Simulated assay, not measured.
Amino acid sequence: MNDTEKISVIIVDDNPSAIEGVKLLLSTYNKFKVIATFNNGEELLNYNNIHICNIILMDIEMPVMGGIEAAKRISFLYPDTKMIAITMYQHRLYLRDILSAGFHGFVNKGRMAEDLNDTINKVNSNKRHYPKDLNI
């Protein structure tokens, strides 16, 4: 699979170790290409090539601009962009916020290794994806 056939991903998280962990996890598959990483939503919104990515993986809680606010703006500016929230929270209150912000799915940080590949594939195929064990 060449780079033009791979699913292009942007990672947004204020924790450099989390970014590196996601990059490492994605590298274990031969179908993802990380095209950019950012430390908060404001940095992401200043990026001129959001429109070329397939998926944005974004933390919810970040300084400067969190994932919910950034997702609302991206949904308005780039309505075809697919976003997946990365969060430690698994409660219906957060699900409502995530859905209303424009995310297409989310992955719990504690289950990244088990769920990230499937979540990206489903969201990239225009499906919504939420954890099976969601506390709703």
Rank of each mutant, 00 (worst) to 15 (best):
P131W: 08
M83A: 07
M112H: 06
I60P: 04
M65Y: 05
P63M: 10
V34E: 00
Y47N: 11
I35N: 02
Y89L: 14
P16D: 10
L45T: 03
N121K: 09
N121G: 14
E43P: 03
I86R: 09
G110C: 09
I50L: 15
I52M: 05
F76H: 15
K109A: 15
D14R: 04
L45A: 02
G41R: 03
F76T: 14
H104Y: 10
N126W: 12
M58A: 06
M83W: 01
M88P: 00
T81C: 14
N15K: 04
Y94D: 11
M62P: 08
T87Q: 07
L26I: 02
A70G: 10
M62A: 03
T28Q: 09
L134F: 09
N48R: 01
D133C: 02
M1F: 02
F32G: 09
Q90C: 14
K31M: 04
T28L: 05
N108D: 12
F32C: 13
R96E: 08
Y94S: 15
L99M: 12
I19D: 02
Y47I: 00
A85T: 00
T87H: 09
I35K: 03
I11L: 09
G67A: 01
S100W: 01
V107K: 03
D14W: 01
G110E: 14
L95W: 06
H91T: 12
P16Y: 14
P79Q: 11
I74N: 07
V22K: 02
K132E: 10
I98V: 08
K82D: 09
P79K: 07
V34S: 05
H104M: 15
V12I: 12
V12T: 01
M88H: 05
K72I: 08
Y78R: 14
A71T: 12
I68M: 04
D80H: 11
M88T: 12
S27A: 09
N121A: 08
D118I: 15
I136W: 13
S17R: 05
T28K: 13
H104E: 14
S27T: 10
S17I: 11
T81E: 11
N46R: 08
Y89G: 09
K33E: 11
L44K: 02
Y47H: 09
A85C: 08
N108F: 05
K109I: 15
G21T: 12
Y89K: 14
K31I: 10
R92M: 14
